[in-house]
Write a protein that binds this DNA or RNA. Structure first.
Length: 680
DNA sequence: TCAATCCGTATC
DNA sequence: ATACGGATTGAC
């Protein structure tokens, strides 16, 4: 049939065939280092290892360590990364040829590969799972737009730097200047830094990065929230300029994310700021890893292997022998344990400095919390002390009101028997989303007009919890001449100005006031403390410290009023501004309860019969405690395993073997989580 | 005796 | 996940 084509058509055909098929010359291997070791992207636990391929002659130049390739694996084309080129293979059988180089861009750096492997092993996961987060998806157009290749010269170094020239911001902490000096001189100090309240912390972090840069080294800084990233970004821009660093966050979108990543991978930038997506950034000559507010659960990855940014950075610091800085207003139990084990120094200010920088904190009892709150009631229930302090503070500036639940009346119960009110149609929880609508179901939206309690036939709803929107409404009425801002839910404010105003915010959505708040009110502290969970107290203190840190110092009139039980140890720690002491007691409790970070803990979740089957084949190391299994939600069962931390590697190895065995035998999957934040 | 099917094993 | 091989089963 070919004879009937015109000459042009034949040429086009031949060309097309040559391009489409482009079969690698499997008969001729590369003259030098003809073996490529590949990390293949296969989601099977028992295939979590490297595979060797022959580099065909025509790909010799383009197969570089760290680049993306396509290889034939078990009969189909799969993606992979070249880990290294080698002279020979340990594999006994014949090697298949590497099929295609997706791009010669070296995106998987050896250091990042090493830390990804360690993270996978620490969390009983697979390398592929970690690499998916460590290396963002390729964006071909972005790859083509840049100058490409390696940076030809070292990034311009700031002039040699003495901590004194950085200003005064690290002078208040004991050991602060010494920390900067060691960073600037190429040292690798490790520190848990309890920051003084105020907005200085962002500049201090930026200065630690600049000090590290003075020694010719790069930094990775992870912050929980995008607004924190912006704050440190602004501070850093003032010191190194807009081109001196990149921001790498999961919210960036594919093109921008890959662009930022490439600038780092190509060695054009050595300072990376971001959230948990930045922890694996391939920074050259890494000198410092830093994390802000490591107790914030935004640092915990929600996808397998459920690793925590703090642990990723600690593994990196260990492997790359660089400095580590864990900063925050609070102090996580994990950070505290780094201090007590001697791994990290504690950098914090003397009592006197803390007293000078912190607002005055009072606790006032809330007798009204016991009273019924009818959902129709409009009267503001506010302890007298709160009213007076706020009225006074509003003369000087904005007042932050911290309300733990978003919404109007976010939960409703039966007035008579106090059971949670549920939807007659679908059993969903009832709430009242605003003043102008009737209570309705949060799941199906049905309006509960003719509600009656299935337990006691009561017909009256009660609102045990007041949400932030309702709080805003009530406070607006009590202080009618003052503007009220709401921040929370899908409407989060990042800053407010210094004019008197009431700012109602839910946890994590607190705006920063430029000159500090004149006062803050912590409402419903009992609600925060009565939640179920393992880390309720430390989480509450962390949040309250973060709120209180936004308030002016006591010497400038800054006040915090917490409405709650004055004898609560958590509130007392807030009054004394003693996060480290509180974390130390928390660590003691974890020690006696055999919980992380003192013990290594893992949960296995699956249907009851699958779980039983898995437990039979699981070869647990000595000293492993097995708790359960117990039934949890959705007909699933869960077992908790724990072991002294120094034996944790044995446990995670056993769990990896369990997963490998199950995946090779095509058995139903079991969810493994190592050191989960909560046992819900 | 041969083909269809199942199960186990390797995947470079 | 496939893909392959070796064993097993079943029909002529």
């Amino acid at each position: 049939m070919v004879e009937s084509f015109t000459r042009t058509e034949q040429l086009a055909l031949a060309k097309g065939r040559a391009r489409a098929a482009a079969p690698p010359r499997t008969d001729v291997a590369a003259p030098d280092v003809p073996v490529a070791r590949i990390a293949v992207d296969i989601p099977l636990a028992h295939l979590d290892r490297l595979f060797d391929y022959v580099v065909p002659l025509n790909l010799h130049e383009s197969v570089v360590p760290g680049c993306r390739v396509k290889v034939r694996f078990a009969g189909r084309d799969v993606d992979g990364f070249v880990v290294e080129r080698a002279e020979e293979s340990g594999h006994l059988g014949a090697l298949a040829p590497l099929r295609r180089v997706v791009s010669s861009e070296a995106v998987l750096h050896p250091q990042v590969l090493a830390v990804a492997r360690m993270v996978a092993d620490r969390y009983a996961g697979s390398l592929g799972d970690v690499l998916r987060m460590a290396v963002p998806p390729r964006h071909a157009r972005v790859e083509a737009e840049g100058p490409g290749g390696e940076a030809t010269q070292e990034p311009t170094k700031p002039a040699p730097l003495h901590p004194a020239s950085l200003g005064l911001s690290w002078t208040r902490e004991v050991g602060g200047e010494a920390l900067l000096e060691r960073l600037a001189n190429g040292g690798s100090p490790r520190a848990v830094w309890t920051a003084l309240p105020g907005i200085e912390w962002a500049s201090q972090l930026a200065e630690a990065v600049v000090a590290t840069a003075a020694s010719g080294r790069g930094s990775v800084v992870c912050l929980p929230d995008i607004r924190d990233v912006e704050r440190v970004g602004a501070a850093l821009e003032a010191l190194v300029g807009r081109d001196g660093f990149v921001v790498l966050t999961s919210e960036l979108g594919p093109a921008a994310r890959y662009r930022a990543f490439l600038a780092v991978a190509r060695g054009q930038v050595r300072i990376v700021l971001g959230n948990r997506a930045a922890a694996f950034a391939p920074v050259r000559k890494l000198g410092l890893v830093a994390i802000w507010d490591d107790g914030d659960d935004l640092h915990a990855e929600q996808r397998a292997p459920y690793h925590h940014t703090r642990e990723v950075l600690l593994l990196r610091a260990h492997h790359e022998r660089c400095a580590a800085l864990l900063g925050g207003f609070g102090c996580s139990v994990e950070a505290r344990s780094l201090i007590e084990s001697g791994w990290a120094a504690h950098v914090s200010a003397a009592r006197e400095q803390v007293r000078r920088a912190a607002p005055l904190v009072h606790v006032t009892g809330d007798t009204d919390a016991e009273l019924a709150r009818d959902f129709a009631a409009t009267a503001t229930r506010m302890p007298r002390r709160v009213f007076e302090v706020v009225r006074e503070a509003l003369r000087a500036g904005p007042v932050l009101v911290h309300s733990p639940r978003y919404g109007y009346l976010p939960a409703l119960t039966c007035e008579r028997c106090r059971q949670a009110a549920r939807c007659a149609a679908c059993s969903g929880p009832l709430s009242r989303p605003s003043e102008s609508v009737w209570p309705g179901c949060r799941w199906c939206g049905a309006v509960a007009e003719q509600w009656s309690c299935p337990h006691c036939q009561g017909r009256v709803l009660r609102a045990p919890v007041v949400g932030s929107l309702r709080t805003g409404q009530e406070w607006g009425r009590s202080f009618s001449s003052v503007r009220v801002h709401n921040s929370g839910g899908d409407h989060v404010l990042s800053d407010v100005d210094d004019d008197p105003a009431i700012v109602i915010a839910t946890p994590g959505a607190e705006p920063v006031a430029q000159g500090g708040y004149a006062a803050a009110v912590l409402l419903d502290t009992w609600l925060t403390l009565s939640r179920p969970g393992l880390r309720v107290d430390e989480e509450a203190l962390r949040r309250w410290l973060n709120v209180a840190a936004l308030v002016r110092p006591g010497s400038e009139g800054g006040r915090v009023i917490a409405v709650g039980e004055p004898t609560s140890p958590t509130l007392q720690a807030l009054v004394r501004w003693d996060p480290a002491g509180f974390a130390s007691r928390g660590l003691d409790e974890r020690r006696s309860a055999h919980l992380p970070p003192v013990s290594r803990l893992a949960t296995l979740t699956a249907s009851p019969d699958v779980l039983t089957e898995a437990l039979v084949s699981l070869e647990l190391p000595k000293l492993t405690e097995v708790l359960g299994p117990v039934e949890v939600a959705d007909g699933e069962a869960r077992v908790v395993l724990r072991i002294p931390r120094e034996r944790g590697a044995g446990l995670t190895k056993a769990l990896q073997q369990l997963q490998a065995g199950r995946s090779s035998r095509k058995l139903a999957s079991v969810r493994v989580q190592v050191d989960p934040l909560e046992l819900t």
